[in-house]
Design a protein around this nucleic acid. Sequence first.
DNA 1: GCACTTGTTTTGAGTGATTCAAAACAACCA
DNA 2: TGGTTGTTTTGAATCACTCAAAACAAGTGC
Lengths: 139, 139
Amino acid sequence: MLGERIRDAGLKVTEPRLAVMRALESRPHADADTVFGAVRGELPGTSIQAVYGVLAALATAGLLRKIEPAGSPARYELRTGDNHHHVVCSGCGALEDVDCVVGHAPCLIPSADSGFSIHTAEVTFWGLCPACQASQDSH
Amino acid sequence: MLGERIRDAGLKVTEPRLAVMRALESRPHADADTVFGAVRGELPGTSIQAVYGVLAALATAGLLRKIEPAGSPARYELRTGDNHHHVVCSGCGALEDVDCVVGHAPCLIPSADSGFSIHTAEVTFWGLCPACQASQDSH
DNA sequence: GCACTTGTTTTGAGTGATTCAAAACAACCA
DNA sequence: TGGTTGTTTTGAATCACTCAAAACAAGTGC
């Protein structure tokens, strides 16, 4: 099934690609290094460059989405195509999904676009996760 | 006047700091390297580390805002405190201001916050700037 | 005005995340 | 089963930025 999705996207089905997708299934929002660790577990000998290559290929194919929050390495998720948003913890970098607020994008149409033809709107919330709130209170 | 703003923020007024602010006045959304180039023009001998230090100090003091769009070096702007947003050109990285859409943030309150205490909402639009649209059409 | 304290900048080096390139390799088609 | 084309490995490099110690200078109080 993962294999089909990869093939349907016009890509060759390889072990590293399957391993990366499997890693992201159980680790949403993992960064490249975390994915690398997971992949290396079941497929030793895989290089970090291969992981970057796979992530880039799958992202281009639309099978995964790359998230690049300020101040932390890029994160990857399999949930694509529904333009949901994210909350990032400014304390520890924890990242969670946030479903689009008002149902659908009133906020996704800028008033003046400076002549740009806009294709995406990205919303990121910043805050403190429960754990970081707790450690801040006791301080 | 720039000096006063710096002093009022509790910082010492120095030439590098004045030069950085002047550079950003005429170059909104410049990156560190661009600022460095401008500063070096009027104050040779300034180091790039000083520029990074100044930018960090002024950002912490609230005198400037750091913008970190995916895929390009951090950009800096003097326009702070009004939580406006940005459009980024996915072709060339050009960046422009976008005033907040619906007047005030309906989109800035997520439906479910996963227990995070949110302090900021950031909206980034991605699209093609007029120049990149043109070069794409003729292609 | 002058010394002093504290915050800044310089100088020099290092790091993390990611990318580039060439050669070895393996999917998939015929 | 062979050939072609896309992938991965191996090895190296780059970019943007940070760290640390020493030299220096703003701004305070005398």
